[in-house]
Amino acid sequence: MLTLGCETRRDPAAYRWDGMRRGDTRSQPKIVFQCTLTGWGEFEKGSRRWRVGEGEAFLTVLPSRHVYYLPQESDGWTFFWFNTGHPYVVERLSVVCERHGPVLPVSLDSRLVARSLELFEKTCGQLFDDGFAEEEALLGWMVELERHALDTAHPKSRRESMIESLRAYTLENLHRSFGIEELAARHGLSRSHYSHYFQRATGLAPAACVLDIRLTEVRRRLRESSRPLKEIAAETGFADANHLCKAFRRLYQISPGAYRKLAGA
Rank of each mutant, 00 (worst) to 15 (best):
M1D: 04
G5W: 14
T8L: 08
R9P: 06
W17D: 06
R22L: 10
S27R: 15
V32F: 02
C35L: 14
T38A: 08
G39N: 02
G39H: 03
W40V: 00
G46K: 05
E54N: 09
E56P: 13
L59Y: 02
P63I: 08
S64M: 03
L70Y: 13
P71H: 08
E73K: 12
G76C: 07
F79R: 03
F79V: 01
H86V: 12
H86Q: 14
H86Y: 15
Y88Q: 13
V95W: 15
R99K: 14
L104H: 15
P105F: 01
S107R: 15
V113W: 12
R115S: 10
F120G: 00
Q126T: 04
Q126I: 04
G131V: 01
F132G: 09
F132S: 08
A137S: 08
R147P: 02
T152I: 06
T152S: 08
P155L: 11
P155R: 09
K156N: 05
R159H: 04
L166H: 01
L166F: 07
A184E: 11
A184P: 12
G188H: 01
S195K: 07
Q199P: 11
Q199W: 13
A207I: 03
V210M: 07
D212T: 14
D212F: 14
E224M: 10
S226T: 00
R227P: 07
P228C: 05
K230Q: 13
A234L: 14
E235F: 00
A239K: 10
A241G: 15
N242V: 15
K246V: 00
F248N: 05
R250E: 08
I254V: 11
A258C: 07
A258I: 08
K261D: 02
A265Q: 14
